[in-house]
Simulated scan of single mutants.
Amino acid sequence: MTDTVFDAAELAAVVDEREADITGRSKRIWLVRDDLCVVKLIPSLRSFTYDRDELVDETGPLRLDFYEKAAARLSAAGVECAFRTRLGPDSYLADYRPPPPFEVIVKNVATGSTTRKYPGLFQEGEPLPRPVVKFDFRVDPEDQPIGEDYLRVLDLPVEEMRSQALIVNDVLRKWLDPLVLWDFCVIFGFSADGRISLISEVSQDCMRLRHPDGSSLDKDLFRTGASTDELIAGWKRAFDEL
C-alpha cells in the first residue's frame, strides 16, 4: 500500500474482517499501518448533563456527510486534517495520530459549560466579544476544564493548538454563514515529525449550530429531549442552508 493509492474496497473490508484496534465513545478504529487507519462511526449520542445515552443509526451518515464537507474546507484553508477519503456511509480513511486526552473548545456564544459552571458571569446565548478558547481533560463520566500550564508541563504546544483552533473557527463560521456557530470542540494530534493535525470529527455531534431563526441544528436537540425524527430533521435542515 503506497501513500497515494489505496484499494477502497480492501480498506472498507477491514471493518468486517477483524475486531477494531481501538473503540471510543463515538467511533471504532482499525489500524492498517502505523500512520493510517480506517474509522467507523458509532451512531451514539451522549449527554452527561441530561443523563441521556442512545444509539440513533441515521446520525452516523449525517455526521460523516458534514465532516467530509468541513474537512475539504479546512484543508483548502491550510489546516492539516486527518481525514483522507470516505469509504462508506459511516466509514472513512484517515491518518492515524495517537490522540492526547485533551480537547480544545472554542466558544463564540456563552452557553453550555460557560453558564453552568460559571453562573452569573454571562447570560445564556450571549454573544462573546471575541472567541474564547479553553482546554478540557477528556475523562469519564464528564470532561473537566484543565489549566493551560498543566498542558505546558506535558510539553504540549498550547499556543499552536489555540491558534489552529481559532483558524478552524474562522473557516467554519464563514462556511456556515448564515447559520450561527455557537461553539465546538476539536482534538489535535501530532505526526512523528511534530506537525499538528486536526484528528477529530467536525460535525453537529461536536458543535452547537443555530439557524438564523434561533432553532437548534445540533446535538442540543438530543440534550433537550427531541424525538429521533425531530433530531434527524434538524440535522438535515443545516444542509439546506449550505
Rank of each mutant, 00 (worst) to 15 (best):
D35I: 12
A71M: 11
P119M: 07
D53W: 02
P100S: 00
P100G: 01
L128A: 08
G88L: 13
E103W: 11
P98Y: 06
S113L: 07
P101I: 08
L87Q: 00
G112H: 03
R52P: 04
P100D: 04
T59I: 04
D34M: 02
D90I: 08
G125S: 02
L74E: 02
G78Q: 06
L74W: 04
F48C: 13
L74S: 03
V79Q: 04
V39L: 03
A94H: 03
T115D: 06
T114P: 14
I42T: 08
C81E: 12
Y50R: 08
D57G: 09
S47Y: 09
V109E: 05
D35Q: 11
K69A: 15
R63M: 14
D65P: 11
G78Y: 03
P119G: 10
E124M: 12
Y96V: 05
D51F: 14
A70T: 10
P98E: 00
D57I: 07
F48P: 11
G88M: 14
C81L: 12
Y118S: 15
R46Q: 13
A71C: 12
L45R: 00
P61F: 07
F83L: 08
K69R: 15
P129V: 03
P129G: 06
R97G: 04
Y67D: 11
A77E: 08
V109N: 00
R97F: 09
R63S: 12
D34C: 09
T59C: 01
E103L: 13
P101Y: 02
K117P: 13
R46E: 13
Y92E: 00
P89F: 11
C81N: 09
P43D: 04
E80M: 14
T111K: 09
D90G: 07
